[in-house]
Design a protein around this nucleic acid. Structure first.
Lengths: 241, 241
DNA sequence: TGTACATCAGTGAACGCGCGTTCACTGATGTAC
DNA sequence: TGTACATCAGTGAACGCGCGTTCACTGATGTAC
């Protein structure tokens, strides 16, 4: 008859984690723009003002969710690369790309949160967000560079001529980050990222399935083609464990 | 002192067009999920129930906006292809791809509406949406097929082996649509779409700019590389007007 | 062991707001005779 | 030319709802002496 007066919190988790967990669940239902403090509080069995003890503003909660998402994506990709026994750059690149898609498919709302439509009125704090957004790709950068230096990766002829404006900007970036690599290699990375990102994006919103059915298989085929187009073999390595 | 009692409609436009125009403007401000009948009515100087005379439900307004967006994208791409004087498939493909990005950059919210996060609670009527979504790509299909049949397009070796599951689905699609073309060519189209879509998506949400600066130049470079990787030349044609 | 105090997560009421949808209605316009 | 009627875009009130944020507060817990 009477509503429960005390919270129905889960014992094993601290409050901020519980709040974020419920927020993620509700985003899945109402979209990334549909996060609402009152609704989260209701589901947790507490009142809305209680949440202000942990997240001073709604925006802070969103930022925390974005931080978690980028971190989880990066950790998933890194773990996938580390789990590859061959240690060959081509295989590690494939592992990283496959992990990118798998994470997106398993966490579609987190993917929308970090790569999809912006949340109206929310402004991400750049000093937090930009380094975070970079982390998932540092390993792919490293693989490309390693493969290139080992002579395993050949830059296709059609990617040799990086536009001057783009090259100028890359020079600035190289100076600031301390990472030095040929311009076409950086451009190739951007192109590769766009390819896997586009595939994932189209799959998530069901644009591929009507025509190809098995989007996972098409993705794998695309990754293999990408690696092969760089002159790298994806055949099982001889130093396989 | 007193609020205007009569509508402040624009004489040159019919009501549904005005409602859609205001809805588009407000989506730019509040996101695709932020369309609100009351807010639209307020801006038009009418009351909310008046909108029901034109759009029986909010969902019908959203559907109308989606129809307009797909139609406009397709028309823009078709016009760009038609405007190419050389009539060579490679040039027409470049024109279509450039138009895809240009439209997205000029209509970012419409692009989000048709290719971005779904609007929570809204379900698009499939019988309207699916044929519409196909139209922008029929011309690219035709260019690819024409180039292939003329021997101008070479399918790269790494794209030859289409996965069996995907091929099976494509067979069904070919049967239904009456369009017949080699499986690798269809897969190549999907791959190409993913590439340009990924680039546009990343540019729209500012993921490329920190590193490359001029996203438009990078896009042009990517399109040129794509066409060249198919063995097609993008040099000016001899039959140029 | 007992008392006084500080801490602080959470409450409940309130503020002012916007939302989609329904309903009976008004009042201008056009049409039939 | 004049009257009766139908049409229909738009009104205004109402329904019941949810929202973020503020504020003074309560009441359990831990700590200092």
């Amino acid at each position: 008859m009477s509503r429960p007066k005390r919270t129905i919190t889960m014992p094993g988790q601290d409050m901020p984690s519980q709040i974020k967990a419920v927020a993620r669940r509700q985003m899945a239902e109402h979209g990334t723009a549909g996060i609402a403090l009152r609704s989260i509080a209701r589901e947790l069995g507490i009142t809305a003002p209680a949440i202000y003890n942990y997240f001073p503003r709604l925006d802070d909660l969103i930022t925390a969710l974005i931080v978690d998402a980028f971190t989880d994506l990066a950790a998933t990709m890194e773990a996938a690369e580390d789990a590859d026994p061959s240690r060959r750059p081509a295989h590690r690149i494939v592992a990283l790309c496959l992990a990118y898609r798998r994470w997106a498919v398993e966490h579609p709302v987190d993917f929308q949160l970090i790569y999809g439509n912006p949340i109206p009125g929310y402004v991400a704090p750049a000093e937090i967000t930009i380094p975070l957004a970079r982390r998932p790709f540092l390993r792919i950068f490293a693989c490309f560079l390693e493969a290139f230096q080992a002579g395993e990766l050949t830059i296709p002829a059609e990617y040799q001529a990086v536009p001057p404006g783009v090259a100028a900007h890359m020079a600035e970036w190289k100076r600031q980050s301390g990472i030095d690599m040929p311009d076409p290699l950086i451009a190739l990375l951007m192109s590769g990222w766009a390819r896997i990102h586009g595939m994932v994006q189209l799959e998530l919103f069901n644009h591929l399935q009507p025509l190809v059915g098995d989007a996972a298989a098409l993705y794998r085929y695309e990754i293999d083609a990408l690696v092969q187009s760089l002159g790298m073999s994806i055949a099982p390595g001889e130093n396989h464990a």
